[in-house]
Amino acid sequence: MTSRRINVLDVLRGVAIVGTLGTNIWIFTSPGGPADVMSALGRPEALETFLRSLTNGKFLALLTLLFGVGLELQYRSAGRRGAPWPGWYLWRAGLLFVEGLIHYVLIFEFDVLMGYAVTSIVVAYLIGRSDRAVRIWMVTVGSVFAAAIALLTAGMLAGGTGAGGPAEPSTLFSQGSYPEQVAARIQLAGLYRLEAVLIVPLGIVLFLLGSRLMRAGVFEDSGRGAALRRRLMVAGLAVGLPLNLLTSFAGPGWFLVDRYLLPPLVALGLLGLVAAVTQRMTGAPGPLRRGLTNVGRTALSCYVLQNLVASALCYGWGLGLAARLDGLRPWWVLAAWAGICALLMALSTLWLRRFRRGPIEAVWQWAYQAPQRLSEKSDKAVKNYVGS
């Protein structure tokens, strides 16, 4: 890959990470914590509903597409080296699952890394198949997923699903201790991990789509790449975005459509837009572009850090700002998001001045290579023994 194409991917990853925080920040800043997610959807505040709609599901879908692009790059790398596939990639997926499990238990209820790990194992066996086979998988899984969302949505609408919160709002996150929150994540894993059930089939489609967009030249600085990016922007921003805005104001009964069906279409438009703008930029990057690029280069570290910082700011075991500043919504929520984003950009920039990878990326890379090094040493020892 050329350096320009690599820079485009870094910027896109940075946008996806800060955009994902744009969704999660509403969870952290709610005094009821994750338990208050559904009840918040029915609040009459039009401004907050609009602000939530700007990020809800869209950057999760963008991040999922980019994981598919990353899987494609790993597949190509294995091919160039003549290495078996999926081979050691399955070890990568296992490490990602462990990292997600730790992140879920210790930091955040709605971790996506565990779902991505399971998805990557499935897609690893599909990515090298013919385009026809991949299309069949995408259409089949996508159709079943869409039908399931449609049935669930119909049930929610028929059942008159409301947005009323519980009779006694939870004080676990506004007043509870850190150990109590960890214990709750373990006890309620079945509830909090429900989203992962939806992420896996959606992820299979988006992983494969990201891989095929990469092959189609979406990041190329060429006429073909520019034309593809324009088509993505039209489909995602001119068609998908207005429809997604409608479902955002349609009520909690449309929650699943609003989060899982329409946002992937908008994410394609965002991918085309960010890639097109980045491709046209020349000269030295400014603070915003440099910051997003560095966040993208340290994406895993920033994903974990942003959730840890938001927890410390908002929850009762930290500064407890969610309860203290609830009367200043939505403005203080925007300020919290912007402040954490600025912190991520500053810290990632300072870190990369001295290190090639983010801290979690470095540990993860060491763990990934450790069994390979042991295997190579073992093979070398056997050869030396046989040779002697």
Score class of each variant (00 low, 15 high):
Leu194Trp: 13
Leu194Asn: 10
Glu195Leu: 15
Leu198Phe: 15
Pro201Lys: 05
Leu202Val: 08
Gly203Asn: 06
Gly203Trp: 06
Val205Tyr: 00
Val205Arg: 00
Val205Asp: 00
Val205Cys: 02
Leu206Met: 12
Phe207Asp: 07
Leu208Pro: 06
Leu208Ile: 01
Arg212Glu: 11
Arg212Phe: 07
Arg212Asp: 03
Arg215Asn: 14
Arg215Trp: 11
Gly217Met: 10
Val218Pro: 01
Phe219Val: 04
Glu220Asp: 15
Asp221Ser: 14
Gly223Met: 05
Arg224Ile: 13
Ala226Trp: 01
Arg230Glu: 06
Arg230Phe: 01
Arg230Pro: 00
Arg231Tyr: 04
Leu232Phe: 02
Leu232Lys: 00
Leu232His: 01
Met233Ala: 05
Val234Ala: 09
Leu237Trp: 00
Val239Arg: 00
Leu241Val: 09
Pro242Val: 12
Pro242Asp: 07
Leu243His: 01
Leu243Cys: 06
Leu245Pro: 04
Leu246Tyr: 12
Ser248Leu: 04
Ser248Ala: 15
Gly251Tyr: 08
Pro252Ser: 09
Pro252Met: 11
Pro252Thr: 12
Pro252Val: 14
Gly253Arg: 10
Trp254Gln: 03
Val257His: 13
Val257Gln: 10
Asp258Arg: 14
Asp258Gly: 10
Tyr260Ala: 08
Tyr260Cys: 04
Leu261Glu: 03
Leu262Met: 12
Leu265Met: 10
Leu268Phe: 06
Gly269Ser: 04
Leu270Tyr: 15
Leu271Asn: 01
Gly272Asp: 04
Leu273His: 06
Leu273Arg: 05
Val274His: 00
Ala275Ile: 04
Val277Met: 03
Thr278Phe: 04
Met281Cys: 11
Met281Lys: 13
Thr282His: 12
Thr282Leu: 07
Gly283Trp: 04
Gly283Thr: 09
Ala284Gly: 09
Ala284Phe: 10
Leu288Met: 13
Leu288Asp: 04
Leu288Pro: 05
Arg289Ile: 15
Arg289Met: 15
Arg290Glu: 14
Gly291Asn: 05
Thr293Pro: 02
Thr293Cys: 11
Gly296Arg: 09
Gly296Trp: 09
Gly296Cys: 10
Thr298Asp: 04
Ala299Leu: 06
Ser301Lys: 02
Cys302Pro: 00
Cys302Phe: 03
Tyr303Glu: 09
Tyr303Ser: 05
Tyr303Val: 14
Val304Leu: 15
Asn307Glu: 13
Ala310Met: 11
Ala310Phe: 04
Ala312Lys: 07
Leu313Arg: 03
Leu313Met: 15
Gly316Tyr: 08
Trp317Cys: 01
Leu319Gly: 11
Gly320Ala: 07
Leu321Met: 14
Leu321Glu: 05
Ala323Ser: 13
Arg324Val: 13
Arg324Pro: 02
Leu325Pro: 03
Asp326Asn: 13
Gly327Tyr: 03
Gly327Val: 12
Pro330Gln: 10
Trp331Thr: 09
Val333Gly: 08
